[in-house]
């Protein structure tokens, strides 16, 4: 697909730069805070390396459209415009967090942003995406659902059933496989009979979208924009974004990314880091833009620092929170 960088407004490219840098700095901060035990919990899966996928994809939809994802959800929440303070507070299990400190890193959500949440059972959110899209079609609304799905989740039954049902009912879903080449510690080619994952669309009689360069926010944006247009008018699309996770599966896994035989792979991907790729596009097109980019980076540092301060000063939930919202009273 021909990229149209030259026609994209400068403000949009700078906004994406801001979002990608913010997510990276946010995730680096989470990593540091976890090491210092200022963020606790067993699970935390960082979005570093994936930023261009989330930012590019969500730039292609409107606030009235819908987004749902799995447990690697920090970057999706931030790209959808959820307040970094509330996201950081959720990491720290505070009452001011997106889920009041009851969901944690893997269960961020924001109803007001039509961000239907991060889900921690692999594949579990996929039929929810189908159901949200059913509501859209049932009510005759013009919206679409973007459902992210990891490469690993494409191998469980939820994927098959949810994607097939969306195809049978011609529902407006864009399934974006975030293929980072590894499901926990198992490589795609060891886990999938057809490692060209987007080919599965054929089996469902569904529109096969592109395999896009997930390191390039512009390429992701353009591919998703086209897929969204198709989904709005016709029905579901399965597409794939090729990317790489920089910090292993999650905080419980440091050994994978530390493996000597994978260091060169990581280095190759980091040479095409989403920040580098976008920065290069910007500096090529706009002369003397570096000071502006530095201001954006400083701004991101400030936002992350404020988020940490807000979260640390927020109260922990109490007994009344423990027992609230088990049922709708």
């Amino acid at each position: 697909m021909a990229t149209q960088t030259a026609t994209l407004p400068k403000e949009q490219l700078l906004d994406w730069y801001h979002q990608i840098v913010l997510i990276r700095k946010f995730e680096n901060m989470c990593d540091a805070l976890y090491a210092e035990k200022r963020i606790t919990g067993v699970y935390m899966h960082l979005y570093s390396g994936h930023e261009a996928t989330g930012v590019g994809a969500l730039a292609a939809i409107t606030p009235e459209d819908h987004v749902i994802t799995a447990y690697r959800d920090h970057g999706i929440a931030l790209a959808r415009g959820v307040d970094p303070k509330a996201v950081m507070a959720e990491m720290m299990g505070k009452r001011t967090g997106t889920s009041g400190g009851k969901g944690g890193s893997m269960h961020l959500a924001s109803r007001e942003h039509n961000f239907w949440g991060g889900y921690a059972i692999v594949g579990g959110h996929l039929p929810l995406a189908t159901g949200i899209a059913l509501k859209v079609k049932y009510m005759g609304e013009p919206n679409v659902v973007i459902s992210f799905v990891g490469d690993g989740a494409t191998n469980n039954g939820y994927f098959h059933e949810a994607v097939n049902l969306a195809a049978v009912w011609d529902l407006p879903v864009v399934w974006i496989i975030e293929n980072n080449l590894v499901g926990m510690g198992t490589r795609v080619e060891e886990a999938s009979g057809q490692p060209d994952l987007v080919k599965r669309a054929i089996a469902y009689g569904m529109k096969e979208g592109p395999r896009v360069d997930g390191q390039d926010v512009v390429a992701v944006y353009e591919a998703v924009k086209e897929a969204v247009e198709y989904a709005r008018a016709t029905g579901p699309v399965l597409m794939e974004s090729l990317t790489y996770r920089y910090q292993g599966h999650g905080v419980s896994d440091r050994q994978y990314s530390a493996r000597e035989d994978l260091k060169s792979e990581l280095e190759i991907w980091q040479q095409r880091d989403p920040i580098i790729v976008l920065r290069s596009r910007l500096t090529k097109r706009f002369k003397n833009i570096e000071p502006e980019l530095e201001r954006i980076e400083e701004e991101a540092d400030r936002i992350v620092a404020e988020a940490v301060e807000f979260a640390e000063q927020s109260p922990a939930p109490g007994y009344e929170d423990l027992i609230a919202n088990v049922y709708v009273e």
Binding site: I68, L128, G131, I132, L134, Y138, M139, A162, L165
Partner: peptide, 21 residues
């Protein structure tokens, strides 16, 4: 009518209910 897809029936019902049906 749905396919024989119990995981999707149960899960899609959750999504549809969350969204307002």
């Amino acid at each position: 009518d749905t396919p024989i897809s119990e995981m999707a029936i149960a899960g899609a019902a959750v999504g549809a209910a969350m969204a307002g049906l």
